[in-house]
Write a protein that binds this DNA or RNA. Structure first.
Lengths: 231, 231
DNA sequence: ATTACATCGTGTTAAATATACACATTATCT
DNA sequence: AGATAATGTGTATATTTAACACGATGTAAT
């Protein structure tokens, strides 16, 4: 049965493309919708912006309400404003992305009834998504790729301690191409923001690799300053 | 006398940062407002999006109405959504930029009464602008700079035929730094999309420089394909 | 204890690109 | 004819990127 909702005037919404990395695969966060239109469809976590909140704040709130995730740094990447992108009226949506560490323990749980559930889904073989969310995802994925080539943003996806091979696999997953092991390591280490730990990988049935962690300070120092020029 | 306008609900608007280059200086297009709030202030060309037009279409229409300019390729670069950025209510604005050739002949003439006039203003020493337009400009300028370093977008600002020195001056204006003449030329020519003409600069009181033009085909072939990856 | 296995960790060479740097040439003007 | 002002050009060095293979190490099985 299709539920008819009232038509509305101009509305802003937020949609989130949240990337995670698990079991060697790049994934994004999806929800199953519990509201018309597109009830029961899969969609990016997204909802309507309130009158009294900035869009950045709205993005955080909405992601939390639909997935239970909070305190992640999201960045807006594009605004989608085709007239008929929403079947019930004019909705312009600002799309945000974030890269986060998938924490297996932590359950994803919507805190509103707008989503039935939230879950991670591999970016390869994404199903059809509600609205124009497939296009939003694609745009976001391309931004991430482009950005990865000039800024090391991949650390946000890995656990605190990681091996260089894990880091390389992640790069390969995002860029969809193989990289040379020796050159990759040389370059990553040359940046100077990887800290070698006195610790090794555990529980593998072969020679364990060294663990590294990411020195956020140095990273910020090196890369943040390049980004903006005061006018 | 202050005119009190009705409060409104959520509204989308567009603001445009249009760059031009004239007399060795980088300029942007400003209007003088003829409406409250900020009546008589200088501002970026911008106005409200209609219900039945996409934001891209709105951007073209609004720029035309406020300045008389049309048919330029604008690109959205950021959306500004602070709650109080507009004194009369909630207005979220999508900012667009474009780089265009300043055509001295063509008069800038608003076709609505919302702007008293439109004119080019050097980006150095910009006055205070209405709303958060100074911030919007700054964000746009930084995007352009970043983009210029990995994509040759400067040609859109020059007349059809230009000298290499003019091109270099433009790069220097955008990047705010001096470049080496020989290296600059070597690199530009190596791209292969500059076509050397059988013509020289006219009307200078010194040795005239060769004129070049920009081969859009080759340019597109080389640079467009790098931009997007199909998923 | 030996062996098989799987991944780790490492260095060199060649090619391409980026940087630094100075002066003779040419057209115009007086 | 000479002064002026900008054009147009080449080389040497440093840096970055790319290509490429194998011995070392820890685990597990016998």
């Amino acid at each position: 049965m299709e539920v008819k909702l009232p038509e509305f005037d101009s509305v802003f919404s937020i949609d989130c493309v949240i990337f995670g990395f698990e079991a060697g695969e790049l994934k994004i966060l999806l929800i199953e919708r519990n509201e018309e239109p597109f009830k029961d469809w899969l969609a990016l976590p997204g909802y309507i912006v309130e009158q009294n909140e900035s869009i950045d704040t709205a993005a955080e709130r909405i992601l939390y309400e639909l997935t239970g995730l909070r305190d992640l740094h999201m960045e807006q990447f594009h605004t989608f404003g085709e007239v008929n992108r929403h079947p019930q009226g004019r909705v312009i949506t600002v799309a945000y992305y974030a890269l986060i560490r998938i924490n297996g323990q932590k359950e994803l749980r919507p805190v509103t009834q707008y989503a039935k559930k939230a879950f991670w889904h591999p970016v390869s073989e994404l199903p059809k998504l509600a609205f124009d969310h497939s296009e939003i995802f694609k745009t976001g994925f391309n931004k991430i790729r482009r950005r990865l080539s000039y800024q090391p943003i991949a650390f946000e996806l890995l656990p605190e301690k990681f091996t260089l091979t894990q880091l390389q696999m992640l790069y390969e997953a995002i860029l969809s191409k193989k990289l040379d092991k020796r050159n990759f390591r040389k370059k990553m280490l040359s940046y100077g923001f990887l800290k070698e730990l006195d610790e090794k990988q555990k529980g593998v049935s072969y020679r364990a690799a060294k663990l590294y962690k990411f020195d956020k300070r140095k990273y910020t120092k090196i890369f943040q300053s390049e980004l903006t020029v005061e006018v």
